[in-house]
């Protein structure tokens, strides 16, 4: 049975990708909020924010916007998983001779694909709005790697939410704090402009190190220790969320 893991995951992934293609509004909705935020910050608040650097404000805030895009996108992953559980198709899959982990992995891979498309759309709009970077191919790949890791980590958090939610609203509500987290970080304003306790929180939460790393990569500056802190956070969240999700899944299917 395990020999079918890849094949079964592929079949089920193409199924849920088809769901997204049939309702592209999920990708558009995911991209619309970050784009609106980007317009708001660049053309309304941005002029009043002193970032302490020569970079244009859109260059400064794009990393944070990309994280918000992903944080809102994974809500749909929890939502789709929840609907499968509700509708009975999940039980059908579980009673069939298919690799059991495939059902979850299909949702995870779909989440990755959908979020990368949303991120691509947001970057496209940012380019139109004046975002510029001289980043090398290697730097772009590093940014992509961090965003993929971020998506995977949050996707497994979404899997926990999707598996344990009791209502549709519950399945997606968990993402609100995640969407909010970048606002209390270095994403939109330097942390040293914030009052003590807030600044302490902002400097020590995962988003700041991730934002600083991506920003440095785009600006062709050294990433410093931020990249290691960011990677530690991302891998830590990924491992913990994965372990929790699998434990819940096991309990659910046994």
């Amino acid at each position: 049975m395990t020999t079918h893991v890849l094949g079964d995951t592929g079949i089920l992934t193409s199924r849920s990708l088809r769901h997204i293609l049939r309702s592209p509004d999920t990708i558009i909705t995911t991209a619309v909020t970050p784009i609106a935020l980007m317009l708001l910050f660049v053309y309304v608040f941005g002029g009043a924010i002193n970032t302490g650097s020569d970079e244009s404000y859109i260059n400064y805030m794009l990393p944070g916007i990309l994280l918000i895009t992903i944080a809102s996108g994974i809500a749909y992953t929890a939502y789709r998983l929840f609907l499968d559980l509700q509708g009975g198709i999940f039980e059908r899959f579980q009673s069939m001779p298919i690799a059991r982990s495939s059902v979850l992995w299909a949702h995870v891979l779909t989440s990755l694909a959908a979020n990368l498309v949303s991120v691509g759309i947001v970057i496209g709009v940012a380019l139109i709005m004046g975002f510029r970077t001289g980043a090398s191919v290697a730097a772009w790949l590093a940014v992509a790697g961090i965003l993929i890791l971020f998506t995977l980590a949050l996707t497994w958090v979404a899997v926990i939410a999707g598996l344990s939610a009791k209502t549709v609203d519950g399945a997606s509500a968990f993402s609100y704090p995640l969407i909010f987290l970048p606002f209390i970080s270095s994403a939109f304003a330097p942390t040293d402009s914030m009052p003590g306790p807030v600044a302490w929180f902002a400097e020590n939460q995962p988003v700041t190190s991730i934002v600083n790393t991506i920003r440095a990569l785009f600006a062709q500056q050294p990433v410093g220790s931020d990249v290691w802190i960011a990677l530690a956070w991302l891998l830590g969240i990924l491992v913990v969320a994965y372990a929790f999700a699998i434990a819940i899944y096991r309990r659910k299917i046994s």
């Binding site: 088809r18 769901h19 509708g87 009975g88 198709i89 039980e91 059908r92 009673s95 001779p97």
Partner: peptide, 16 residues
């Protein structure tokens, strides 16, 4: 699982 098929209480079809 190789020998059975389950049709649950709620029609388990993919509506999309």
């Amino acid at each position: 699982r190789e020998s059975i098929s389950l049709t649950g209480q709620f029609a388990a079809v993919d509506e999309v």
